[in-house]
Design a protein around this nucleic acid. Sequence first.
DNA 1: TCCGTTGTAACAATTACTGTTGCGACGGTT
DNA 2: AACCGTCGCAACAGTAATTGTTACAACGGA
Lengths: 147, 147
Amino acid sequence: MSANSRLTIAAHALAWIGLYQRQGHEVATSEGIAASVNTNPVVIRRLLGELRRAGLVESRRGAGAGWSLARELGSITLLDVYEAVEPGPLFAMHRTTPDQGCVVGHGIQPAMRDIYQDIEETLRHQLAGVTLEKVLTDVLAAPRRPL
Amino acid sequence: MSANSRLTIAAHALAWIGLYQRQGHEVATSEGIAASVNTNPVVIRRLLGELRRAGLVESRRGAGAGWSLARELGSITLLDVYEAVEPGPLFAMHRTTPDQGCVVGHGIQPAMRDIYQDIEETLRHQLAGVTLEKVLTDVLAAPRRPL
DNA sequence: TCCGTTGTAACAATTACTGTTGCGACGGTT
DNA sequence: AACCGTCGCAACAGTAATTGTTACAACGGA
């Protein structure tokens, strides 16, 4: 599986915005977030655009523009983020239809579909159990390098 | 996530070999399996090669060559297959190291790592609960088109 | 009017997966 | 010894997703 980092980056960005706002700032810029993530601001804007479509963040344009949370960190779960940034299923079926004249080719897709549905259901349940509030708490609990 | 079909195809191939052997055949050819999967025999040989390295199947060369199960379908789980064909983790971290001078950049990776470990552990547990024997049973239980 | 930021298009680079061709290696069978 | 079907494997093209980058129009407060 070509593992992608979209969920990680999205969680990073949301936690960053949340902490930034708690420090008294109104909005966060894609440039500030990108500096923390260590990537290009456009990458952040693209990703936050998907989170905005999902109703997790809001953006302002014009002068003093930037991003802010549309919901409290405690009410956003990793499932919300996952659904916003990960379109496809975890496991895919055959790209071409298997031989329907073969017993196995005919029955394999319904069989795997049921199994995969169970797995995705469990994954979603687990993701739903982690709020971004908890993510930020864990982030801040990471041991700091001694001075 | 670029969903791939490797787990699906591997399960298909194993179920096919298992059923074929129960019908009295000694070995299955990559060509026969490929016909059921509807793909190229080389794709099947590549995938079965990985399953062989994992000890799930054996191959014979020379005349009368082909593939056979190294273990009973009932003793092979989807976790065995998953580990054989899916190398990477489900979710990836940042490709470049986040800004360690930022509190979030510093703590995000340990935080997400713990979360992802829980999720993968659950996934593995679930995959371990499904044997290829059950997969084949489900495959054969699929309703057939009426004649 | 100015100016910082978003929104978005366009493109390159990288990576993974899939499909395909080609051919040497193997090992029963004749 | 020769034959022949199959595996083993390298090499390459095509497709697709992700990531990074540049460029620029649009917005809107100062």
